[in-house]
């Protein structure tokens, strides 16, 4: 898998900056995966709903730990900052435009992994480039955690067969609503 490395965050200088950014990245990923879980639930794909919920939980737990490690004062600033990321979307964002109601675990893992990879790159970039020792230590810790998550997912993915060619086939036409 190719990793596109680019400067994603404009100014992470302090530990507060880093915690907030890391929280937003992890939370974004968790929320996207949770949204996918809900989409799958509504569209009667329980296998994928369950998988996405489990994947969401990985990132949500990570986000919760980062949140817990924050100084209380920092927390109220989380959503007060510019949400925009340089280059493209938030490193934690999952490409939900790739979702499909008949998607299978093989797709789900790959979708999650591409986001996990970007989160890894985000921590990696900070660990390499920051001049703040405390930020570097935290970035290295979180890089290790996401790397472990990636390894775990890659191992699981290796056991899953690729879907058949017509995996997205549906005999019925789309339904007319309003």
């Amino acid at each position: 898998m190719t990793r596109r490395i680019q400067k994603t965050v404009p100014d992470i200088e302090t530990l507060e900056d880093f915690h907030i950014a890391a929280y937003l990245v992890e939370d974004e990923c968790g929320e996207c995966l949770l949204s996918l879980a809900h989409q799958m639930e509504v569209h009667h794909n329980p296998l994928m709903a369950e998988l996405f919920e489990r994947l969401a939980d990985m990132r949500k737990r990570s986000a919760a730990e980062i949140f817990a490690a924050m100084e209380p004062e920092w927390r109220k600033n989380i959503y007060m900052r510019d949400l925009r990321w340089l280059g493209e979307s938030c490193p934690g964002a999952v490409d939900i435009l790739s979702a499909h109601y008949r998607m299978q675990p093989w797709h789900g893992y790959r979708l999650a992994l591409s986001a996990f990879d970007r989160i890894h790159d985000f921590y990696d970039e900070i660990a390499v480039e920051t001049e703040n020792d405390a930020v570097r230590r935290h970035a290295i810790d979180l890089r290790a955690r996401i790397a472990a998550d990636i390894r775990a997912l890659e191992e699981e993915l290796a056991t899953i067969p690729e879907p058949e060619a017509a995996w997205d086939h549906d005999d019925d036409p789309p339904m007319i609503q309003e």
């Binding site: 639930e41 959503y79 998607m103």
Partner: peptide
């Protein structure tokens, strides 16, 4: 947690969308 801070999730109703996945 500071009560005044609002999270994006505070603005979700809990009704799950019927939009197609993707």
């Amino acid at each position: 947690m500071n009560e005044a801070m609002r999270k994006p999730n505070d603005f979700k109703s809990g009704v799950k969308p019927i939009w197609c996945p993707g």
